[in-house]
Amino acid sequence: MSDYISELRKLVGHKPLILSTAGAIVLDKHDRVLLHHRCDNDLWGLPGGVIELGESVEDAAIREVFEETGIKVDNLKLFNIYSGANQHYIYPNGDEVYYVCITYYTRTFNGQTQIDGIESKDVGFFDVNNLPQLSQPIKCILEELRHRINNNLLQ
């Protein structure tokens, strides 16, 4: 958790916060999506996280992918922006958030996947039609991705 969010939590406790996040859909040559097994809720998710103060959204997405998976991404394209009830989440510690999730996608990446043991306990590429148990806020994102891939709507 960033220092900024920690300071806000000292003031508001577990009350809902609106948080801007950035993440990326990383696709390999077989249209499999990169996911990481999260340490905080033991579910799978897209790499992404809270945008730091003064950080651009794209830089945040690039940073988060690298921190959580060890993969370096480039050539990000806007996939969609998600907000509202589908982006409501309560963390295991009781912290409540409503995300404004700016999601990019790319097929341009390099490096080897690495597990940091802090945010991720596993990393892998998955077929969009056969996904592991997902963290709630990304289900709608991956449903849209599945639709676009299965209907050849994604470059």
Rank of each mutant, 00 (worst) to 15 (best):
I149L: 14
R38T: 12
S135D: 05
T103V: 15
A85H: 01
N93S: 08
Y91N: 08
L46Y: 04
Y82T: 01
N130W: 05
E68S: 03
K10N: 15
E7V: 12
A85E: 06
Y105F: 15
I118A: 09
A85T: 03
V97Y: 00
N130A: 13
P132T: 14
A22I: 10
V97R: 00
D74Y: 08
V33S: 04
E7T: 14
G117V: 09
S120V: 09
Y105H: 09
D28L: 07
N110I: 00
C101S: 12
Y89D: 00
P137G: 03
I149R: 07
C101M: 10
I62G: 04
I138R: 02
V12S: 07
Q87C: 04
D42A: 13
T103F: 02
D28N: 15
I5Q: 09
G49C: 10
I81C: 12
V57S: 08
N110E: 10
Y105S: 05
V128D: 11
P132I: 14
P47R: 03
V57E: 08
V97N: 01
I90F: 02
G94V: 02
V128I: 15
V128M: 13
H30I: 01
L8E: 12
T108P: 01
I102N: 04
L8P: 00
V97E: 01
E96G: 06
E7Y: 11
L134N: 05
Y82Q: 01
I81Y: 09
I62Y: 02
D74W: 03
L17S: 12
L43E: 07
V26A: 01
V33Y: 06
T103N: 06
K10S: 13
I5N: 08
L8S: 02
G94S: 04
I149F: 11
Q114A: 11
S20L: 14
D59T: 13
Y4S: 13
F125E: 08
L17G: 06
T106E: 04
D40L: 15
G54L: 04
K72R: 15
A61G: 11
L27K: 02
N80M: 12
I71V: 14
E7P: 06
L17Q: 14
L43D: 04
N80C: 13
E7D: 15
D31E: 15
T106V: 07
G13F: 10
I25Y: 00
N41E: 09
A61T: 10
I138Q: 03
D122R: 11
G13W: 09
H88Y: 11
D127Q: 14
N110C: 03
C39W: 02
R148T: 08
D3M: 08
L35P: 01
S120N: 11
F126G: 08
F66I: 03
L27C: 03
E96A: 14
F126A: 10
D28T: 07
Q87W: 01
I102A: 05
R32I: 07
I115D: 07
I71A: 03
E55K: 07
K10C: 06
Y98I: 13
Y98E: 14
S2Y: 08
V50Q: 12
K10R: 15
V57P: 00
G48Q: 03
P47K: 04
F126T: 08
Y89Q: 03
R32W: 09
R38P: 01
L153V: 06
